[in-house]
Design a binder for these strands. Structure first.
Ligand code: DGT
Ligand code: MG
Ligand code: MG
Ligand code: ZN
Length: 585
DNA sequence: GCCGTTTTCGGCCCGACTGTTTTCAGTCG
């Protein structure tokens, strides 16, 4: 069982317990355990085998027993009891904004309603509004909310969210009262997808700014509008939260609004343990019992996030690391990694031309790469068997190489490497013979075709490719497509081990719908000494700009400049390759 | 239920907005 499946069962137990009225710290314990399981880098089935479940944060004796039971039987007694007691669809009710555990429980208890259709009927015919604590406004909000849940389900890719955020920020900055504005939340942390947009503005006239924003033509629904924050829906039902604070509160507010929630909680606990209080307005001394009421100490160190971290005894933590997955301990011990930066990138090691399924000729791609300041570019068109992508035969690959040689002789500023994205066939062998691959400057191996039931599985195919002496990089290893396809069943530990042993690099595919390897896997890979190639997989010269997204994800994976192959100069890269080939012969 | 440079009990982040609540619970960030 995967950690995600295990975590889903803990989330379900937490939600059902909450519906039954459980609240407070015990509930938080279930929620934190679920989160902790979800983010744990190693499969808990392995941790269990080692007998180390209780070393996982948030897992104690009782949860360890439940995990063991779930790993062995797929479920546990408590979960089965809860499922028997409550209707399965009831958790759907809580997806409607404004309907939490108390309301969902009441709706089920009083109206016998336990799914979205039933809720819609009850809201429409007045039964909902008649409940205690309910009225026509809430019932109407529920109807709108159901509509929203149906129209919108999921999360938005960062590549879609970023331009939307920038557009809305320029709207906010257009207001005379706005001193500064920035995006925060998961977008600032560089997540692959975001649940909403979180925008922060600094202003002396918050009410005016928020009112104007909520009245904007792009707003389809106002969910909340107060003195310090507004929540609205824009087109497609996408939610935007705006928070407005005074200029001197901006740093503390940015820290708060960037999150993550778990990171915030840890910082606030840390502050408290030092006799301080941290909130979105600043860092203050905790009022002591003997202090006169109303005489609050002024906020400390609120000019920048860095000053706030320093006041808590921490190094500055970049937003991409703020997930409470070890960054606070590292910052306390001055052990934070120096993360790779977009300016460190000197080449792109996976691109396609119109010889296979790309749009542009190599010359156009190379010109665009030079304009971006890249020193080198590997052209890696698909191989023979990928017919739908017009994969190259050995012969066409040889003529493409001649083409590239001519371009390089033409003396562009960007050196073109003769490469190939060679398919790892269902039987596990590579799609092109060794003598063809041996003539190339760069070899990327990838799987685009399903595994056969009677053949090697994905892990075996990729591990085999990593062990092949002529393969430099394994491309988009998990095969996930964000928002569309779950990762293939890949034993990532096995692939990382093989890559570490053979010196093969793993790709972080920068295409915004892949971002594969995912950041947690990148973190484990670099921890094992594996090099990462951040590559755009461009099928069009404009895709070369995806590199920044890739670097962003790499930073979330704690990847340093020295872990990144394409942060090397061309000379260093070729030297790295010579050594790898010499070792693996 | 978990956890420990306040260690095995007594804590567990902190605040904004809404509706119908006559004093604040529920929900959300
Ligand atoms: N201290 C504290 N801060 C919170 C809490 N919930 C949210 N925040 C802060 C940190 C979040 O990053 C920020 C924005 O909240 P969101 O719900 O939009 O979450 P976030 O953007 O991280 O993820 P998302 O992609 O929107 O699901 O607000 C909380 O319970 N306590
Ligand atoms: Mg958000
Ligand atoms: Mg938000
Ligand atoms: Zn490709």
């Amino acid at each position: 069982m995967t950690n995600a499946e295990l975590a889903a069962r803990f989330h379900e137990m937490a939600a059902l317990l909450e519906l039954k009225g459980l609240a407070g710290f015990k509930l938080r314990a279930y929620q934190r355990a679920a989160q902790s399981i979800e983010e744990h880098p190693e499969p808990l089935s392995e941790v269990h085998r080692r007998g180390g479940l209780e070393t996982v944060r948030g897992i104690g004796e009782s949860f360890a027993r439940k995990i063991e039971e779930i790993l062995q039987t797929g479920t546990c007694r408590l979960l089965e009891e809860l499922r028997a007691e409550l209707p399965p669809a009831i958790l759907q009710l809580m997806r409607v904004p404004g309907v939490g555990p108390k309301s969902a429980a009441m709706i089920w208890r009083e109206l016998g309603v336990s799914d979205l259709d039933g809720l819609e009927d009850a809201a429409g015919d007045g039964r909902l509004a008649a409940l205690r604590g309910w009225g026509s406004k809430r019932a109407a909000a529920v109807l709108a909310g159901i509509e929203g849940v149906r129209r919108w389900g999921g999360r938005t890719p960062i590549a879609t969210a970023l331009p939307l955020a920038q557009g809305l920020l320029s709207v906010l900055r257009g207001h005379v009262g706005v001193v500064a504005a920035a995006y925060a939340g998961s977008l600032r942390r560089g997540l692959e997808t975001v649940g909403d947009l979180d925008l922060l503005v600094s202003t002396l006239r918050p009410r005016e700014v928020l009112d104007a924003f909520a009245a904007g033509p792009f707003v389809s629904e106002v969910l909340a509008l107060g003195d310090t924050k507004a929540s609205v829906r824009v087109r497609d039902g996408f939610q935007v939260d705006v928070r407005a604070v005074a200029p001197e509160q901006y740093a503390a507010a940015l820290l708060y609004f960037t999150g993550s929630k778990e990171h915030n909680v840890r910082l606030r606990e840390l502050a408290k343990s030092r006799g301080l209080r941290l909130n979105e307005y600043g860092l203050t001394c905790l009022p002591g019992a003997e202090d006169p009421p109303g005489l609050e100490a002024p906020p400390l160190a609120a000019r920048s996030e860095a000053e706030l971290y320093a006041a808590l005894g921490l190094e500055y933590i970049p937003p991409e690391l703020r997930e409470d997955t070890g960054e606070i301990e590292a910052a306390a011990g001055s052990r934070l990694p120096e993360l790779v930066d977009p300016a460190d990138i000197r080449g792109d090691l996976h691109t396609h031309t119109d010889w296979s399924d790309g749009r542009d000729p190599a010359a156009v791609l190379a010109g665009a790469a030079a304009a971006r300041g890249l020193e080198y570019l590997a052209i890696t068109d698909h191989s023979r068997s990928l017919a739908f992508a017009r994969g190259l035969t050995s012969e066409r690959l040889a003529s493409q190489a001649e083409d590239i040689d001519a371009l390089n002789r033409g003396g562009g500023r960007c050196r073109i490497l003769r490469g190939c994205e060679v398919e790892v066939l269902a039987g596990g062998e590579l799609d092109l013979p060794d003598e063809v691959l041996r003539r190339l400057d760069w070899v990327v191996a990838a799987v685009h075709t399903p595994s056969r039931r009677d053949g090697p599985d994905l892990t075996a195919r990729l591990v085999g490719a990593a062990r092949h002496p002529l393969v430099d990089v394994i491309a988009h290893p998990t095969g996930r497509i964000i928002g569309a396809r779950q990762p293939y069943e890949l034993d990532s530990e096995a692939l990382i081990a093989a890559a570490a042993e053979t010196g093969t690099a793993l790709e972080l595919n920068a295409s915004p719908h892949r971002l594969d390897v995912p950041p947690p896997m990148a973190r484990r890979a670099v921890g094992a000494g594996v090099k990462i190639a951040i590559s755009t997989d461009a099928h069009d010269h404009r895709n070369l700009g995806d590199m920044e997204m890739g670097v962003w994800s790499a930073r979330r994976g704690w990847v340093r400049r020295e872990d990144v192959l394409n942060a090397l100069s061309l000379e260093q890269l070729l030297e790295w390759r010579r050594r790898r080939l010499a070792r693996s012969r």
